[in-house]
């Protein structure tokens, strides 16, 4: 009897790229729900616009490159990029900026480098930084959390605002939107105010800001789920959160009036999202275990440095992109010792 042949190993585990991506999307759900809860339907509208733009852009480029379109879209990586970028955008951002950022992420940052697996930079963060640098005003206008907001936008309002730019009647940008908590902290400190003075505003919660600390906590939960499911290893989040915590603690101990607590840093802005969902993008991160710890810690430190001394209130996107550049070098210098290469020759 004749048989077909194939190369060993003949059995493989159940893991696949699309499963990995699907787990990541699943782990994002709690955080996204919280974002919508606190900041309105604009979050969801952004994500949907981003998803449509990402899948369309990816399909178009794959077609031009002569690659299988449906099978590649099925790896879900474009969707993950879209969701990560979409949820990071202000819930009032005009639709075409979302589309611009996503198309840049998919076409320039990902496909022009060869598509999935070949991009040196995290595509979502590349798209985010493009928008932040080019459209700073639109990108830094955030809604206050629903609990403390004087006006809230319903779904139709949000949709109209995003698609046409027209406000609900009697509303102005200034009345409706404001700076993010990190931005307010930074501005306050720049005006030589003390942290306890800044925190008198009703925007502030127990560790971070109202709403934001919940979102961060749910990202943390989703991230721990990914670690438990072995979708990501603990090294990068531990490195990043550890690095940020330690350096923030040092400065906080030196002067607690002008340096927020390390927990504030961990539960504000995109720290948790970055630690578990962005810095851990395996394609653009370091791969050795020691390398991941170093890579994560350096991102954490960069986040602190940029937040404290840089030109932007949050820094996760910049820090991740900067460390993406260093990942190959970190990998090179952190190779593990292979079996049988122990110097003394025994245990």
């Amino acid at each position: 009897m004749e048989f077909a042949t194939s190369s060993s190993p003949h059995i493989s585990g159940s893991q696949s790229v699309s499963r990995v991506m699907a787990e990541v999307l699943l782990a994002l759900v709690p955080g996204i729900v919280a974002l919508i809860w606190f900041f309105g339907w604009g979050v969801l509208i952004n994500i949907v616009i981003a998803a449509i733009a990402a899948l369309t852009a990816e399909a178009a480029v794959l077609k031009l490159r002569g690659r299988p379109v449906l099978r590649t879209l099925g790896d879900l990586s474009a969707l993950v990029t879209a969701v990560l970028l979409g949820l990071a955008l202000p819930p009032t951002l005009p639709w075409w900026l979302t589309v611009l950022g996503v198309v840049f992420a998919i076409v320039i940052a990902k496909q022009l480098y060869g598509g999935l697996g070949y991009n040196p930079f995290n595509p979502a963060m590349a798209g985010y930084v493009l928008l932040l640098v080019s459209f700073p005003l639109d990108m830094t206008r955030w809604l206050p959390p629903a609990e403390v907001a004087q006006h809230t936008l319903d779904f139709a309002d949000s949709l109209r605002l995003i698609l046409t730019g027209s406000m609900p009647s009697g509303m102005t940008w200034d009345a409706m939107t404001g700076a993010t908590p990190l931005d307010q902290m930074r501005t306050g400190l720049d005006m030589n105010r003390m942290i306890h003075e800044i925190r008198e505003s009703p925007l502030w919660g127990s560790v971070g800001a109202v709403g934001w600390e919940w979102v961060a906590g749910l990202y943390l939960a989703g991230g721990l789920y990914l670690v438990w499911r072995k979708i990501i290893s603990w090294h990068i989040p531990a490195g990043m959160l550890g690095g940020l915590f330690v350096i923030a603690l040092l400065f906080n101990m030196i002067d607690a009036h002008t340096h927020p607590s390390p927990l504030f840093h961990l539960f504000s802005g995109a720290t948790m999202l970055g630690a578990f969902f962005i810095a851990t993008d395996p394609v653009s991160a370091a791969t050795t275990n020691r390398g991941k710890l170093i890579y994560g810690a350096l991102i954490g430190i960069l986040v602190f440095v940029i937040r404290t001394y840089g030109g932007y209130p949050d820094a996760v996107a910049f820090a991740v992109l900067l460390m993406n550049m260093a990942a190959p070098t970190i990998d090179y210098y952190t190779q593990p010792r292979a079996f049988g290469h122990r110097k003394d020759g025994n245990g």
């Binding site: 893991q15 790229v17 990995v20 099978r71 790896d75 990586s77 060869g114 598509g115 999935l116 697996g117 070949y118 072995k230 290893s233 395996p282 394609v283 991160a285 791969t287 050795t288 275990n289 593990p336």
Partner: peptide, 12 residues
């Protein structure tokens, strides 16, 4: 069919 390596890292 084989997809591109995403440097997932379980192999190591």
């Amino acid at each position: 069919p084989a997809l591109p390596c995403i440097r997932y890292g379980r192999c190591a």
